[in-house]
């Protein structure tokens, strides 16, 4: 049996990995949805939101079909085995997919809140599109983007339904804080369940509190330095 420490640290690691995986495509899609008009924008928006409205187990099952031997990303089609199912990689993938919509939606709002005329001012001052994005859009959206990262991270941290279908609940291998709590409760191990609950509360509190601090520091800096 892994210790609580081991379960928690691997859960945190997987949630961080999932957040990192989500960041770049998430930011890109959020920016495109907020700032550009293109064919199929609504379809893209709907697809990125789907995991939020589907039962997590349905998403897990969909991923299972995808990575199964005869799936689109399965051994038969690719010619080699990605070795996803029932591995830590499955946990990270399930967490990424489940936290993607909430990250994109929050980041999109953060970008939409930046006055596009400020970006155009940047261009009249000689900044190319990339520089406008880096020195105007990104800093002005920073608070919302921090919130998006936090929400995505906590979503990944607590992911259960999709993870348990794609990665299972193998202690020491794919068991997360959420699935460990589930197992403890099911097997009547109340002490362990209570301990896991305490840890979950603590981790959640620290994550939200840290972000609140960061966000207020960020806005404080804005107020002080403009």
């Amino acid at each position: 049996m892994p210790t609580i420490y081991e379960t928690v640290s691997s859960t945190l690691l997987w949630a961080v990995l999932a957040s990192l995986i989500v960041a770049v495509p998430g930011l890109t899609i959020a920016y495109l949805l907020a700032r550009r008009e293109f064919l199929g924008k609504k379809v893209l928006s709907t697809f990125t939101t789907l995991p939020l409205v589907l039962p997590p187990t349905a998403v897990g099952y969909l991923l299972l079909r995808l990575f199964a031997d005869d799936g689109w990303l399965g051994r038969e089609r690719l010619g080699f085995d990605l070795d996803i199912i029932l591995s830590w990689k499955a946990v990270v993938i399930a967490c990424s997919i489940m936290s993607f919509p909430i990250f994109v939606r929050t980041a999109r709002v953060a970008f939409e809140e930046v006055n596009p005329r400020l970006e155009r001012m940047g261009r009249t001052l000689g900044m190319g599109r990339q520089k406008v994005f880096l020195s105007i859009t990104l800093p002005l959206a920073s608070r919302g983007l921090i919130a998006a990262t936090l929400l995505g991270f906590t979503r990944a941290l607590g992911e259960f339904g999709a993870t348990i279908i794609l990665a299972g609940n193998i202690p020491g291998r794919t068991q997360t804080l959420a699935s460990a709590l589930f197992s403890a409760q099911q097997s009547g191990n109340e002490t362990l369940a209570n301990q896991l609950l305490g840890v979950a509360l603590l981790v959640g509190f620290i994550a939200v509190y840290t972000t609140e601090r960061l966000a207020s520091k960020c806005s404080l800096r804005k107020e002080q330095t403009g």
């Binding site: 001012m121 009249t124 900044m127 330095t225 403009g226």
Partner: peptide, 24 residues
């Protein structure tokens, strides 16, 4: 393109960058 036109544009409502100070 706008960024290569070498002109300064002053809009009615100033549109200063709120995340930078005056010097910035």
């Amino acid at each position: 393109p706008t960024e290569k036109r070498h002109m300064g544009y002053v809009p009615q409502d100033h549109l200063l960058f709120p995340h930078k100070n005056v010097r910035g």
